[in-house]
C-alpha cells in the first residue's frame, strides 16, 4: 500500500531485499523476496515430484498426477520434435513446471495470512534469463548438429530466387526476435493479470469506503468480476507456462530437424 491508503497496483511487483550475500564486481547479490519464492517453488516442485517416485506398476493418485504432467510434456515433445525430442524433455519439463509453479504461487491468496505474495514470472529479468537460456540451447543444438547449414533455416522451402534478398532478412529478424517475444509474453501476461486484479480489488475497497450505495453499486460487480478474473488468471498461469514450453519445443524442433 502506498501513501494515503491508496492501492498502488504496481507495488506488488517490487522486489525487496531480505539480506545481502556477496558481491560480484560492483554488483551485489542479495537474497530477495523473489529469490525466496523461487526457492519455495523449487522445493514444492521437488516435493510434488517425490510423490511420483514410488514407481508402482499400478499408480496411486499422486503418482498419476505426476505422471500426468510428465506424460503431457513427453507427448508434446514427441509430437513436435519426434523421437529425438526425448533428449530435451528434461529441459522443457523443468521449464514448464518451474514457470507453472511460479505463476500459480503468485496467484495464491497468501495475503490472507499476512504473507507477501509475489509473482516471480512478472519480472522481465527472470523471464529474460529463461528465454535466453532456451534461445541459447536452440542455437547450440542447431550449430552443433548442422554447422553452418543451420543458416538454411532462414531460407524457407519454395522461396523464389528473385525474393532471396528479402525473405532471409525477414526470417533472420523473426528468429532474433524469438527470445524477446518469449520473455515479453510471459512477463506481460503475468503483470497485466496481476495489475487487473489489483485494480478491481481497489475498486472494491474504495467502493466500500465511499459508503453503502457506492459500495453495493461498484463493490459487488467488481467482486463478481474479480472472481471471474481470478479463474481466468489461473487459466492464464497454466497457458503461459504451456506456451513457453511449447514455443521452446518448436524452436528446438527447428534446430534439430531443420525443416
Amino acid at each position: 500500500m502506498a501513501d494515503q491508503g491508496k492501492v498502488d497496483p504496481m507495488h506488488q511487483f517490487e522486489v525487496q531485499k531480505m539480506f545481502d550475500m556477496f558481491h560480484v564486481g560492483n554488483h551485489e547479490v542479495a537474497f530477495t523476496t523473489s529469490a525466496l519464492w523461487m526457492v519455495i517453488a523449487g522445493l514444492l516442485l521437488w516435493a510434488f515430484m517425490i510423490g511420483g517416485m514410488k514407481r508402482q506398476l499400478v499408480p496411486g493418485r499422486w503418482q498419476v498426477a505426476v505422471e500426468g504432467f510428465t506424460g503431457f510434456i513427453s507427448s508434446m515433445m514427441n509430437a513436435n520434435i519426434g523421437p529425438e525430442g526425448r533428449k530435451y524433455t528434461p529441459y522443457v519439463f523443468s521449464l514448464f513446471m518451474f514457470i507453472l509453479m511460479l505463476n500459480v504461487l503468485g496467484l495464491m491468496p497468501f495475503g490472507l495470512f499476512g504473507l507477501h505474495p509475489f509473482t516471480v514470472t512478472s519480472h522481465f529479468a527472470i523471464t529474460g534469463v529463461l528465454a535466453i537460456l532456451s534461445f541459447a540451447i536452440v542455437l547450440i543444438v542447431g550449430f552443433w548438429r548442422h554447422g553452418f547449414h543451420f543458416f538454411s533455416l532462414f531460407v524457407p522451402h519454395g522461396t523464389p530466387i528473385w525474393l532471396m534478398w528479402l525473405i532471409p532478412a525477414i526470417e533472420l529478424v523473426s528468429f532474433l526476435v524469438r527470445p524477446f517475444s518469449l520473455a515479453l509474453r510471459l512477463f506481460v501476461a503475468m503483470t497485466a493479470g496481476h495489475v487487473l486484479m489489483k485494480v478491481f480489488a481497489s475498486f472494491i475497497i474504495d467502493g466500500i469506503a465511499a459508503g453503502p450505495a457506492i459500495g453495493l453499486g461498484v463493490g459487488l460487480p467488481s467482486m463478481a468480476l474479480m472472481i471471474g478474473i481470478s479463474g481466468l488468471e489461473l487459466l492464464v498461469a497454466g497457458i503461459q507456462a504451456y506456451v513457453f514450453a511449447l514455443l521452446t519445443s518448436l524452436y528446438l524442433n527447428d534446430a534439430i530437424n531443420l525443416h
Binding site: 560492483n26 551485489e28 537474497f31 529469490a35 526457492v39 521449464l95 529479468a125 534469463v129 529463461l130
Partner: peptide, 16 residues
C-alpha cells in the same frame, strides 16, 4: 538498483 539484476539472475539460475 545495483543488486536487482545480479540477484534476480543469480537466483533464477540457481533455482532453475
Amino acid at each position: 538498483e545495483s543488486w536487482y539484476a545480479a540477484s534476480q539472475i543469480f537466483w533464477v539460475l540457481l533455482t532453475f
